[in-house]
Write a protein that binds this DNA or RNA. Structure first.
Lengths: 342, 342
DNA sequence: CTGTTAGCGCATTCAC
DNA sequence: GTGAATGCGCTAACAG
């Protein structure tokens, strides 16, 4: 098992054993370990020591039954790679306070049956609440009508307005990106983005367009919807460059699309950002890290989503549910693809 | 909360409530729901129906206490992005059988204190076992000497030979990659890889060198250790091309390094794979997806590691622990960077 | 200050 | 067939 030395058999010690070892009664031992009531310091010390010696770890299962709260939450994800889930989990862990709340992570894999299966297991384990993380930003079906614990939807909102959801404000993301391009003097901006069936694509485009309108501008050419791939970034960028109207900036729907764009610009000896600036969305570190120049990108603040989801779950536990969709504001990270760097 | 319709208050139903609703005693209800002993079909049906109506979900906490096994395992990860953890979790979920076993995922964040904290929480929740996922392949300290449940180390092995570990066979990975290059007719192979303090770098290099030796070959030039970045891939590739000895293949320590290499080769109008073949390690989909040509890479089989870890944990639960390090064989994925594609 | 008792929700003996 | 009784590990009221 765990130890190589012939350590004392790691049989789980019970409070009873501790009490016996310390020569006190069950309840005294309990009080001593829980800093309860009046227990003489000597006794307390003796109990503590006994517990230490026996490697006593209180049984949280029992405590959960007694308290009616388990101190656990379920996180149901549908995101295979963990691209969103892990950062969100991190944020949630932070908000919960490490060790206070433990998280059951289960992967629904986009399969409703599987999700139901996991849901049942979570309820059976008496989680205090559930966070559902979607795989895309589109609204998703509510998890179940009769769930006995609060549910918070993260990243992908629930279809049902009565549910509690936290999402990235993609419209705002679009605005932020466009405002930045305008602020750095760009006026002829093309937009290449992903699949139009993703609200992430349409929302960002709408936000950007609105921000441009505020500056008396509009996109040059149509919004070029395609796929979230580098290949599409390359293809669409070539089309943009070959179009009659010149551009001085390309806003890309994702870092991967932007990589494709940079590739083609480099190939055609277009200087970035001097001739054409490039900005994108996601700020996905591994994608960003290697680009030349480094990529200005709008960060989606997954950690913040996780933290807010945890907070909203807490609030719901206290009966203070806040139905509706909360939007987290993304954050622009400026790098060399829009502003020349030292 | 969860439901928008005025669904019946989702107060958790207890077995007692079901029994009452069905007009039977507690134990009869229990037997009926657990397909136990002799209960008249009519009674059983009546109980079932009552349970359904009340949305009864058995309390697994109680069952865990009674059975002495909780049906949960802890997964302690140190991998911030979930790059390894999530695929490993997936594999483990598969091996456990969805819903049978629930997984507590906690993030140690490379912080021993934090890890201990989580460990304590897991033990308190009476997990049946623990899987520890490292952030790099280097051996890591054993989690604790006196842990009362089996522990399996995944990805990064434990320092302690008495522990149970499952890792990728990086030496084999190196061999596989080199064998492939040799099999496709390459004889002058350079190797660019990451930080030499990572065993992943040194093991792969050693494996590749051994395979080359079997073919009467050796690397052209020194193994170029650096960092796991595209920038290093670019820099080192330039150095390789500028060196006096010509090469016909570059083996890269990671997909990111390979991206950097492809970049420079493309820039210098070197044809891949015609003039120089490129192969790498990790087979990380998002990194691979956009390259031109697509990248031949050795897949690290994280799912398999997760599955094996789960199996080993099961075995240990049955008292059949298998101390030592088990190595999972990686798998070559051939693409256009080594073999011209249709 | 310390010990005794009841009971959390359920499965599992046993009697009836 | 069915139901009342014991107990899992622990804490919260009570007594002493």
């Amino acid at each position: 098992m765990a130890s190589s030395d012939g350590a004392p058999a790691p049989a789980k010690a019970r409070l009873r054993d501790v009490a016996q070892e310390a020569g006190v009664s069950l309840s005294t031992a309990s009080k001593a370990l829980n800093d309860k009531a009046e227990v003489s310091p000597t006794t307390r010390a003796r109990v503590r020591e006994a517990a230490e010696r026996l490697g006593f770890v209180p049984n949280a299962l029992v405590h959960s039954i007694l308290a009616g709260r388990s101190g656990t939450v379920g996180l149901i994800t549908n995101d295979l790679e963990g691209r969103f889930s892990l950062p969100i989990l991190r944020g949630a862990e932070d908000a919960f306070g490490a060790g206070q709340m433990s998280v059951f992570l289960c992967n629904g894999r986009e399969d409703a049956i599987r999700e139901q299966y996991h849901l049942r297991a979570l309820l059976s384990r008496r989680v205090d609440g559930i966070i559902v993380v979607g795989s895309r930003t589109n609204p998703r079906p509510s998890i179940a009508r009769r769930v006995s614990v609060p549910v918070v939807y993260a990243y992908a909102p629930s279809h049902d307005d009565a549910d509690v959801s936290v999402v990235v404000d993609n419209v705002r993301a679009g605005e932020i990106a466009a405002e930045h391009l305008v602020a750095t003097g760009r006026t002829r901006i093309a937009h290449i983005t992903g699949d139009a069936t993703y609200t992430a694509a349409t929302d960002r485009a709408a936000g950007a367009r609105a921000a441009l309108a505020d500056a008396g501008l509009d996109f040059v050419g149509p919004v070029r919807y395609g796929s979230w791939s580098e290949a599409w970034g390359r293809g669409a960028t070539a089309a943009v460059l070959d179009a009659p109207q010149p551009v001085d900036a390309i806003l890309c729907g994702s870092d991967q699309i932007a990589r494709g764009a940079l590739d083609v610009l480099h190939e055609r000896a277009v200087r970035v950002p001097h001739d054409i600036a490039v900005a994108s969305f996601d700020n996905w570190e591994p994608m960003i890290a290697g680009t030349r120049p480094s990529l200005t990108s709008v960060d989606m603040q997954f950690d913040a989503i996780g933290r807010r989801a945890a907070h909203l779950l807490f609030a719901a536990l206290d009966g203070k549910a806040t139905p509706g969709v909360e939007r987290v504001t993304p954050r622009l990270v400026v790098r060399g693809s829009t502003v020349p760097q030292a």
